[in-house]
Structures are given as structure tokens and as C-alpha cells.
Design a protein around this nucleic acid. Sequence first.
DNA 1: TTAATCGATGAGCTATGTTCATCGAAAGAA
DNA 2: TTCTTTCGATGAACATAGCTCATCGATTAA
Lengths: 311, 311
Amino acid sequence: MFIERMMNYLERIHLETIRAVDCHGTMTAAAEALHLTQSALSHSMRKLEDQLGVPLWHREGRSLRPTQAGEYLLATAKRLLPQFAHAEERLAQFARGERGTLRIGMECHPCYQWLQKITPPYLRDWPTVDFEVKQEFQFGGIGALFAHEIDLLVTPDPLRKKSLHFEPVFDYEQVLVVSADHPLAQKTHVVPRQLGDEVLFTYPVSQDRLDIYNRFLAPAGRTVRKQKVVETTDMMLQMVACGRGVGALPRWLVEEFSEKYAVRPVRLGPNGVQKQIFVGVRRTDLEVDYINAFLELARGFRERSEEQAPS
Amino acid sequence: MFIERMMNYLERIHLETIRAVDCHGTMTAAAEALHLTQSALSHSMRKLEDQLGVPLWHREGRSLRPTQAGEYLLATAKRLLPQFAHAEERLAQFARGERGTLRIGMECHPCYQWLQKITPPYLRDWPTVDFEVKQEFQFGGIGALFAHEIDLLVTPDPLRKKSLHFEPVFDYEQVLVVSADHPLAQKTHVVPRQLGDEVLFTYPVSQDRLDIYNRFLAPAGRTVRKQKVVETTDMMLQMVACGRGVGALPRWLVEEFSEKYAVRPVRLGPNGVQKQIFVGVRRTDLEVDYINAFLELARGFRERSEEQAPS
DNA sequence: TTAATCGATGAGCTATGTTCATCGAAAGAA
DNA sequence: TTCTTTCGATGAACATAGCTCATCGATTAA
């Protein structure tokens, strides 16, 4: 048809506008947020609509409702704009002579507690690296890695893909935690049936992500009397210590808290429930020094803890 | 420091420039490719460098070598620009009243052969939907799904993630294919040892993705006399038919070709090697009619083939 | 040496995107 | 109902961001 088809109609400002209208409700409010006049946005978007040949909003009365095309562009904006923002942020860090930002994603509570041990020495070694920790992902941790939302994922579920690199960084045993004067506290281990009359405290995550179900109760076809959700580890241990129920935590965590709270770890089943935490990165990022340094540090930690407890 | 920190320095044109310079070697050539003058690019990029406070290229003599910041921005450009292009393409389709483009990714050869069966009826039902099939992914099929490079992934390896939806669409048996006058052609099944003196033809993919190794030879600790790579199914069957070696293919494919070539399927091991192919989509795309329609069609195909061969 | 080609730069122009002023329509308040 | 406010659309006027042109010095190949 036309010789010149390679015109770039779509610009960042259009995406900014689409998103601002969605988020502020009206075009006028969006204009204010973008430090422009309502007229400017109106002209600009009308021009875009003309060039694309498709309306982006249904004009109903004095309100704007996105068309199908508008919805699509909105989704695109919400995906692309944060990447622009992050790129600018990153370049600003280059300008300041800093190394960058290490954005860490986490998918489980033990991951978080492990991370809290790694963080201090890392921050000391890399004072110019910014540190961000995120826990909620629209498309899951793996998706966040691929989408460059995060640079590093701490997770119990590794994924073999040649573009990603996963590496175990921490091994631990998941144990039952009971009050010190609980009858089970004296046992070498507990079997699923013995939890039939207990209240179980868990973190607020879906049941299929709780190892005590996956690896202990469910295989035996057992369940507990009642499950109650607690937000924090301290809260869980408080409730357990005063005999209101039992919980499931990494052994090292229980032992660490056993002075503060009167709680004891009990092995889950005769062999225990062994777990591993992995760190995943994009393979292309393995060359980035401050990312690689984090992995090195994690490896060092792992070796040290294995020496202490060669089990 | 400054009140106004929310300036958007980085624009699409800058990314275009960075990429064009990388791909054409010089700024002058890049300018021509972008239908601009060399002067325009020079001014524009210098302004950006000033605003960001970071040089993007080392100026060495009359050539440009990207700085670390430049490399980073180049990687960003290569990731973001295709998404701009695709968004414009998609909006142009909206303008033409078309539904969109179904971009399918594939991770294995049997996937491709299955797809060839689904494609004709789909194209008939959805004449306004464009159809694209890709086979190479920088970050793997799952990564391509997350990065919106493709809309649909056909793969033997599903992945449980709540943002993705995987669904089995095709079950088949992987069999050994031999010449009709090969001694093994008369057997009900073959055991790993019997392939010790054979030449094995395979597609050009890494060994750990070949089921005949993963599920048949490797578990028995056996191997073949020699492995040879062929590019196409026809080529493989030609070589097999004239007794130059053996191959591994889905049973239905062998049976389909058994009239054209003098080849026979032989079960791998007493129980055979059973395989499944899955289709994965982003969960948010399940509402898109022409994507959902593909899944429906795939389901229909699966039910029909199960009726034919209830095994 | 010569000639070609690179990127940088300043001056000047043009066209793009902005503001201003104003409109009609819609929605909320009295 | 009527009055008032607030929405988005529009045309004209304007300002400036971004482009071209012309030219420079430096580098590289012939």
C-alpha cells in the first residue's frame, strides 16, 4: 500500500497518558498529574487515535471508557512504563558512580529469614549497591525474573531453563514447633495421626504451598483439628509457647527462638522433612559483579553452615 | 535535592538510536536507517547523555564503543522496542477490524507435527486472525510467554504457576522407527541392548531433550553405535527406510508415513514410552476469544483421537 | 599525501506540541 | 426545574524542541 510503513506513532507520552487517565479517572486529572494542560492531552491523544485509525476510548457523555484497543494499550503501558522508569533509575545510578540496584524477589517465609542473615554482610561489602526486596508478583517469581522486575529470586522451587541459573543456597529441616511442656516435646519425632487434635498455626499462604501439608499430612491422608493463620513468626511462636497450638518452621529458626520463647522442635516423621532454598538469576546477569557477589556470599554461608552441622 | 525529579528523559527515539548504532556500526549509517541526519542523532544523543549525566559511548577516534551504561541501554532497547512494534501492529489490526495475531511458540518436533494438524481448521474458523509460529527463544518458551513474545506455547514440559494455564492437548507413544525389512520390525518391542549396534537418527537438538535417551537408553545405561543428525522428518524416514539406521518418532507419525516409506514402528521397552504435549497460555489471555478458541479446538482434537484409539 | 568518512558543533529554521480561550454537553446542587 | 460546576473537544496563536545545513577537525584507508 504505502511505501513508508515504519513510522513510530506510539511514544512514551502516549503510554503515560493512557495510564494516567486510567489511574486518575479523568483526562483533566491526568493532565495535572503529567504537568500538562487538558487541551494538550486531548490534542495529543486525538492525533494518536487518528494515526492508529482506532479510538482508544468510548466517549460517553463527559466520561471516558477504554475501548478494547484502549484496554490493550493500557496493559502494554502498565508493562512497559515501569521498565522505562527502572532504566532511568539505573542510568542515574551509573551517573552517580554507583553499581546498581539488586532487586530480590522472595516466594516463601523461610526464604525471608534466610535473606535477613545474608543481607548485613552484603550491604557492608557493597555499600554503593541499592537493595530492594519484593514479595508480591503478578506473574509469579519466575515471571518477575523474566520481566526484569527483579534480578534475583529466592525460592524453594527451582526451574531448569537454560536462560536461568538456579543454585541451592540453603538446606534446612522443616520441623514441628510445640510448647516446651507439650507431650510431643519429648518425642524424637511425630507422626501425622498425632496432630489430629491440634490447632495448626501457619502463615497466610495457600495450603498447597505449606510443606507440612504437602510433605507430611497430605501423603498420610491426615489433617489437623483446625488451621489458624498468623502474620508473623513472633506471633506464631507466642501462640505456640502458651500452648494454643503448634506450628511448622525451619529447625534453625526454632532453635534460635528457643531462648526467647518456651518452644521445642520435633522432627516431622521418622526421617524428617528436608528442604532446600534456591537462588535464581538470569544467566546473562551472572557476569554482573554485584549480582555474582551475592551468589558467592550465599555459597560461603552455605559451606559454613554445613561445617557446623554436617548432620 | 530538586523538586522536579519526574522528568522523562528517555524516549523511544533514544532506544531506536542506540539499537540502530549497534546494528549499523556507525552513527551516520544509523541516521540513514532512521531517516534522519547524522547531525540530528548526534545532537539528540548528546542531549540525552547530558540529561542522564552519563556517556553512552566511548568516543575513540571516529568510532563509538558503548560504555557500561550504553550496553545496559542497548539491552533495554532490544527488549522494549519489539514490544512497541508489536503493540502498533496489534492496534493496526484492531483498526482493520481484525482480531489480532496468535503467536505460537514451540519447543519440540512432535509439537510441530501436531500443530500442523490443528492449524487448517483454526485458520478456517478465524480468517481474520494472523498466525505466527516461532521456534527459537532467547529465554526459553516460558520466558517468551512471560515477555509477551508469544501468546501460546506448545511444549512437553508444563509448569505449575498460577499466572499460567497449561493443558494437555495430545497424548502419544514415542516409538522406534525401523526399516520394514529390519530384524526388529517383527518384534513386539525392543530393549535398550538391541540398539547397541545401530545408527540413531535424531533431530538437531541437545541430547537431554531427546526422549529416546531420557526415557529409554539412559535409564538402562546403554547407548547406540553412532548418532547422526537429520534436519527433517522426511530425511530421517528416507535414511531409515533404506536401512541406514533407526529413529524415534511418535507412533501416529510413523503410521502416517508407513505408506510413503517402507518403515515400521516398534515399541520402546515392554510398556512403551508415553508422552504428552501441553499448551500453555497466560491466564489473563484465557478471556481473549480467538485464543480460547484455539484451546477449544485442541480439546476437540484430543477427544476425537481418544475415541479412535481408546488403547 | 590525498581523499573519503567519521562524529561534533553552531546557527537558523520549521514543525511539533503546547497554551489559551471558548464551546456544548453532562452531572451534581439547590 | 434551574443554576453551577466540570467534563472533553476544538481552533488559533505561539513557543520551543528538535531538525537541517554548513562546516570543522580528527581518523582511516588508498
